[in-house]
């Protein structure tokens, strides 16, 4: 039975995503404990592998049809790569791209999958994965059976620094299957976010508002607080989906990653997808009536008082 760990590299516009280094760092640790090799699969076109030096070997599937992520093409190729490499464990990012890869690999290659991985270990030869479920309120520990298994890993679970290593690992070129060019699904372009609004990634002070504000009628109050603080209003995803604020204000997995000095979270539960975007703020203050809200695990200060009672009082204190 192979003890190799295979990490699927994620990249967009030629840039390798941080989560790839996170998985490589973790993969290295697992591979050295089990005596296997750390393999990194790169499915793309002209991707520069020089920062993937943490891996012992790179399986490079280089084809113009893989230049932009295509769930159909990439999952077909990954399936054949995993069939050939037969790793003990395949690590895929639990991201927008990885979601399309991990579950389809599980079906195509008939391999067990555990998703939303916060941690993965090999104990007594068994792969154990910890998933983050229920919006971050519950963790679930699973044991995966079989010689080859898949875990999809949440971004931010491991330090990226551990896997970011320059070097020149052995690069093995893998021929792309013909199917890559005749997919039913066609990639037709990337859309970059609109500029023009304030850049929340450059702000020192952010007031993050969530569904707990109830209605857009209450936004002016939140703006007033932001003004009193000398900051800007940012938001969780539902606020943006409701079109109460533009997409440029969205903090999180599918929004922006922010690292302000101060982040005041108002009526935000702290779902993992939101936390991913703001957990590195220097000071986090959370106001949420639910004492079990995961946001309190990341906040430095918190209160379960109603935000509509605290915010007006706070505005008064600050002005």
């Amino acid at each position: 039975m192979s003890q190799d760990i295979l990490v699927v590299a994620e990249h967009l516009n030629g840039a390798i995503a941080d989560v790839t280094y996170e998985m490589l760092g973790k993969g290295k640790e697992l591979a050295s404990a089990t005596g296997g090799a750390l393999i990194c699969a790169v499915l793309g076109s002209g991707v520069d592998p020089s920062s993937l030096g943490c891996a012992d070997k790179i399986l490079n599937v280089d084809h113009p049809g893989l230049a932009d992520f295509n769930p159909e093409a990439h999952s077909t190729v990954l399936s054949s790569v995993v069939t050939t490499a037969a790793p003990r464990l395949t690590l895929v990012a639990n991201t927008s791209m990885g979601m399309d890869l991990a579950a389809s690999l599980s079906v195509k290659n008939d391999l067990p999958l555990v998703a939303y991985g916060l941690n993965v270990a090999i104990e007594d030869g068994k792969v154990i994965a910890t998933s983050q479920l229920y919006g971050g309120k519950i963790c679930a520990e699973s044991e995966l059976e079989g010689d080859s298994v898949i875990v999809s890993v949440l971004a931010g679970s491991f330090p990226a620094a551990a896997g970011r290593m320059d070097g020149s690992p052995a690069v093995e070129t893998v021929e792309a299957p013909a199917a890559v060019t005749d997919t039913r699904l066609r990639f037709t372009g990337l859309i970059e976010p609109e500029a023009g609004d304030v850049d929340i990634t450059q702000q020192d002070i952010l007031v993050g508002v969530g569904r707990g504000i109830g209605s857009d009628e209450h936004l002016p109050m939140m703006e007033q607080l932001a003004k009193a603080l000398g900051g800007t209003v940012a938001a969780s995803r539902p606020i943006v989906d409701n079109k109460w604020l533009p997409k440029t204000r969205q903090v999180g997995k599918s929004g922006l990653k922010v690292t302000p000095k101060i982040y005041v979270a108002l009526g935000i539960s702290g779902a993992p997808e939101h936390i991913e975007g703001m957990k590195d703020a220097e000071l986090i203050v959370a106001i949420n009536t639910d004492e079990t809200a995961p946001i309190f695990e990341f906040a430095h200060y918190g209160t379960t008082e109603d935000l509509f009672d605290v915010v007006p009082a706070l505005i008064e204190k600050l002005t």
């Binding site: 555990v114 520990e141 995966l144 059976e145 959370a286 695990e297 906040a299 200060y301 008064e316």
Partner: peptide, 28 residues
């Protein structure tokens, strides 16, 4: 599905937030 659930638990709270109590006024 090839995996078994061994254990379900609430995440160990790290440091966690220092919770502020009192009236809205005090909290503010």
């Amino acid at each position: 599905i090839g995996s078994t659930l061994r254990r379900v638990y609430t995440p160990e709270k790290g440091e966690g937030a220092e919770m502020i109590e009192g009236s809205a006024e005090d909290i503010a």
